[in-house]
């Protein structure tokens, strides 16, 4: 465990929070499913960043392990999400999430 660099943890966490919120904003504002999936990736990445930052503060490996699990989740989510995107495209003929609203009522 060698000292590498001294960076305030709050700044790291703040960066993670801002990235997360940008991703969330993307999910809420974009209507293109592809862009929504990308925004989701941003949010997941922000979570991973937060884990890494906290793990670095304590000097323990747990943060990195959590990041790896998030990687696994992201991979699974993207593969299924993109498959569903293709299904929506073939069935509705558009990528507009607002038109995929048959669950109403």
């Amino acid at each position: 465990m060698t000292e590498v660099v001294v960076i305030p943890m709050e700044h790291g966490l703040l960066l993670a929070a801002i990235l997360f919120l940008i991703g969330l904003l993307g999910v809420m504002v974009r209507r293109n499913i592809l862009l929504i999936l990308m925004s989701l990736e941003i949010m997941l990445n922000a979570c991973g960043l937060a884990f890494i930052v906290v793990g670095a503060h304590w000097g323990q490996a747990d943060g990195q392990i959590m990041f790896m699990l998030i990687l696994a989740i992201a991979a699974a989510e993207v593969s299924v999400g993109l498959g569903m995107l293709l299904q929506v495209h073939i069935r509705i003929g558009t990528l507009d999430i607002d038109l995929a609203s048959r669950m109403r009522g």
Binding site: E3, V4, G12, I65
Partner: peptide, 26 residues
């Protein structure tokens, strides 16, 4: 979030955690 972060102590980070430590833990 900013408000909550600002209330904590001024924490620093800077411990190297190499691949070996991660692998052992994992």
């Amino acid at each position: 979030i900013t408000y909550m972060l600002s209330r904590g102590d001024n924490l620093l980070m800077g411990h190297m955690v190499g691949p070996k430590a991660v692998g052992l833990e994992l």
